[in-house]
Amino acid sequence: MKYLARRLAYAVLLLGTISIFSFALLQWAPGNFFDSMRLDPHVSAQTVNAMRARYGANGPFVVCYAGWIRSLVKGDMGYSFAYGTAAGPLLWTRARNTLVLTASGTLLAWLLALPLGIWSAANKGTWGEKICGAATSSLMTIPDLLLSLILLLLAVRTGWFPTGGMISSGAANASFWSEIADIVRHLILPVAALTVSILPMLVRHIRSAMIDALESPFIRAARGHGIPRRRLLFVYALRAASNPLITLFGFSIAGMLSASLIVEVVLSWPGLGPLMVQSILARDVYVVIGIVMLSSVFLVAGNLVADVLLFVTDPRIRVE
């Protein structure tokens, strides 16, 4: 319990620091939302200045930050200059969509990476394992952007998959299961992009952790005792390798979140990615900070889960 409380306190401290840094970076970044309005020949400088004053965009850093903390407590998460509304409601729906995508991608990536990594470790040095290694190395070199574009091209050329969005226009009025099927169909390409982007890294880490475990004396002893190979791999070695893999799980969430921003933009998934790009370009600062904070919360929560799992699985941490 004390361990959990300590991790939670760290998490809150980390989130606070991230918020101050991101706030400061955006405050000091050149340009602001209202400047580009001044390029509209129809809008006078007076009107722009009045809007700037009304939204409190002229205030010093501390005042703006304090105002943001107050609105965070209310659940508004600041004010979107572009949308003229609280930033919070803009973010919730999109955060949910991003979570659906990243959770599906993480799940699928781990479901594929575990057997592949274990198989590679168990068959170290064979031709099959070398081919698998070469394939994962090649996949690692493909940037997320290129991968997403290739998948998009595939969708256009074949017509097998939707080319964007999360749900078809008519599907919202269909039955629950039809709606789910439609969402799954729309998920295929972005999840595939996310999975492929992270799978090679997972496979290689799992392989390495498993090789370490398989070469440890207790596994050799167990093998000598005639314990079946399958039981040796999936019960003893995997459990011994789980410590670095759980830590890897925390990292994989970070990788997933950053990849999802690009995948969402290219494959038009209605998550936080497109809104983030739009808001950064427009300097809609509170929306950007809201997205940064939500992504940080996801990341910190993922790492917290990993910490708790480590606590459960590793007795050494419990003793410490």
Binding site: V156, T163, G164, V266, L267, S268, P274
Partner: peptide, 20 residues
């Protein structure tokens, strides 16, 4: 009348080509 939100020009062209 349906307006789809497609953030980039390239993706808009692709969706037009796809008949979306």
């Amino acid at each position: 009348l349906v307006f789809l939100f497609v953030p980039s020009e390239d993706a808009q062209v692709i969706r037009f080509q796809a008949g979306d």
